[in-house]
């Protein structure tokens, strides 16, 4: 009898301590799935995808320049590869940026071989802002739930993403995910000092067929500079195509081809 009492007591005590852990674990799992889906809608977690990206840089409500790039990306066995080829204007044409996980190379006419670069170097110049399209948050960031709040009239999970390594361009991201559709709606990008660097708002108006069903895929990203709030960059994605690439597509030795 004493043994039975002890047994029930132990179960109660164990359950008391375990139940929040189970809840936390399942919440983390649930949010992880949401984050994975949000990554997918922005081009991550697919074996191969290609799109055209039209970038508009706006200062004081005037378009100061536009850039066209073609993005090819794949995520296989947890390894990310992306090739960004600059198409226009002519001064950037034939420039390429290759990412293989955290390895990066840059090439342009006149260079005799692609040069290895760091992610901060990638952020300067013509490739600036392209990084917010990066869609591997589930792999690259630890996440916790900050709150649940409405955004644009719909319930959203607000996640706090913290970089897993020092190699990430942004140390912390505050990320709003639509609770119903799993689309990432807004992201605030913070530096190591905790300073807000830029804010991105995402739209999903591209309807793309994926594995037999139509999905609402990323179409617009509006990036606002925190220092000059009048300065914006608008990224427009079009001609989205899911495809498998030859392995040579993501070879640094083929960048000058």
């Amino acid at each position: 009898m004493k043994i039975a009492k002890f047994y029930y007591l132990a179960v109660l005590v164990f359950a008391f301590f375990l139940s929040p852990a189970v809840t936390i674990a399942s919440t983390q799992e649930y949010l992880g799935e949401k984050l994975k889906q949000a990554d997918f809608f922005r081009g991550g977690r697919v074996s191969g995808v290609m799109w055209n990206l039209h970038v508009k840089n706006i200062e004081r409500n005037e378009i100061i320049n536009t850039i066209d790039v073609k993005v090819r990306a794949e995520n296989k066995n947890g390894r990310l590869s992306a090739l960004i080829s600059f198409l226009a204007p002519k001064k950037y044409s034939r420039q390429k940026l290759l990412l293989k996980d955290f390895n990066m190379w840059f090439s342009k006419p006149g260079l005799r071989r692609p040069i290895p670069i760091s992610s901060r170097q990638r952020l300067s110049g013509s490739a600036s802002n392209v990084d917010v399209v990066s869609a591997n948050y589930y792999e690259d960031y630890e996440f916790t739930l900050l709150s649940e709040e409405p955004l644009d009239g719909q319930l959203s999970y607000v996640l706090n993403l913290t970089a897993k390594t020092r190699l990430m361009s942004y140390y912390r991201i505050k990320y709003w995910i639509n609770a119903k559709t799993s689309h990432g709606l807004r992201a605030e990008f913070y530096g190591k000092s905790g300073k807000l660097i830029k804010t991105a708002n995402y739209k999903y108006e591209n309807q793309v067929s994926y594995k037999g069903s139509l999905v609402d895929f990323i179409s617009h990203v509006t990036i606002t500079d925190n220092i000059n709030s009048d300065d914006r960059t608008i990224l427009e994605m079009s001609d989205i195509e899911f495809k498998d690439f030859d392995r040579s597509t993501f070879q640094n030795k083929r960048m000058l081809d």
Partner: peptide, 12 residues
């Protein structure tokens, strides 16, 4: 070879 040490520092 090359290695990324941080987001701004690269060695080869």
């Amino acid at each position: 070879g090359q290695r990324n040490i941080s987001d701004s520092f690269l060695v080869w």
